[in-house]
Design a protein around this nucleic acid. Structure first.
Lengths: 205, 205
DNA sequence: CACTAAAACGGAGGTGCCTCCGTTTATTTA
DNA sequence: TAAATAAACGGAGGCACCTCCGTTTTAGTG
């Protein structure tokens, strides 16, 4: 395992500020939770008032925690990335390496879908707040790398494959958008990719 | 005069659509005019309703002409660039080459100031609509180039100077921002730059 | 426990956004 | 010039944003 993990790991959860009061933390969590759902279903322009209502708090509370829509979007996005990376570890623990990789890639597709949904705001955020971009893309590619290396090492997929090649292949998901069947297309792409990776592997199973 | 002018000149005013009705054209012009002022004084977040009111039209009219705030911003910005380039020609006609250059640079400072004001929206527009960026930056640097070459040719400023060097020097204006005395600073920078350019020129005057 | 200071809550209210459609106006035709 | 029609106008209305501040809750302290 390379040294890169440490730096990202170090600044995990605590933004170096005194812990929130219990009720505040509770409300904050609910807000992020609900916002994630709403952004996913209705796009980034989802009504903040609606988010507050569904989270069972007043609009004032929402604004105290997230002074602008962008703040909220950023937090949701980071959480998304966090979840994706966490899933990588979990899947690796609970499935054979190749299956873990495949399942994770399917989940990656969902992540990209979200990212698309957030398009405009995210683009702005990613150019404005350059930390965000480097942080998250680093974490995601790190997660993918581990899965691929593990799968290769276990002999479930061909050994010579390079993580960055796979990443590159998945690039297509990112760019080819906007049709209503995008989702299925991407699913098929992942399957196709996995077949390719499995083909000629040491231990076919 | 190089050949570059023709291409830009060709697509001057007519966006290849049937001419507006007289009243529509009038209102549109007023809207852009007023919007330019308001954006300059109040920032891009100036109220659209206020703009409509000051232009003496209903809000509906504004939205018919400019379906989104971004449309309006873009048009205003293009107009700004247009004006800047036009000024270059005019100044060149009415002043000695070095004076023309200096006056134009002062005006360039104003332009940058506007651009700063529009910051967020513009950044988004410039990454979204890549035509906008290439169009305008091309036109502006073209204008500057002509002025500098003319001044160099006339012997009013040193001959060996390269237009892109000057552009680069002006870059400082772009990056060093946000103090309240920004304006004066920039003015002084331009003067300084001109002194440097004049020093050792063939024809001191 | 009771008390208190500090922190968090929440929603009323003022403002801006943007759509929709009945009314007005410019232009064309006879 | 008058009538017809296509185009443009404009503002009411509904919704979302976001601030402000009186009320409520939490977490210490005696």
């Amino acid at each position: 395992m390379p040294d890169q993990e440490m730096t990202t790991e170090a600044m995990r959860d605590a933004p170096a500020q005194k812990p929130l009061r219990a009720d505040a933390q509770r409300n904050r969590d609910r807000l992020v939770e609900v916002a994630a759902q709403m952004f996913a279903s209705d796009g980034v322009d989802a009504s903040l008032e609606e988010i507050a209502k569904r989270a069972g708090v007043g609009i004032g509370t929402l604004y105290r925690h997230f002074p602008t829509r962008e703040h909220l979007v950023e937090v949701v996005y980071r959480r998304e990335v966090e979840g994706l990376c966490h899933a990588a570890e979990e899947l690796a623990r609970e499935h054979p390496a190749d299956v873990a990789l495949e399942l994770w890639m399917q989940r990656f597709v969902d992540y990209i879908a979200t990212k698309r949904g957030l398009a405009t705001s995210l683009r702005l955020l990613l150019t404005t707040n350059s930390t965000l971009f480097s942080d998250t893309s680093g974490r995601v590619s790190g997660a993918m790398r581990s899965l691929i290396e593990a799968a290769a090492a276990s002999g479930k997929i061909r050994a010579e494959v390079d993580a960055s090649d796979v990443m590159h292949a998945l690039g297509g998901i990112y760019s080819a958008p906007n049709t209503p069947d995008w989702r299925e297309r991407s699913g098929r792409l992942v399957k196709l990719l996995m077949d390719g990776l499995r083909f000629g592997a040491r231990q076919a199973d």
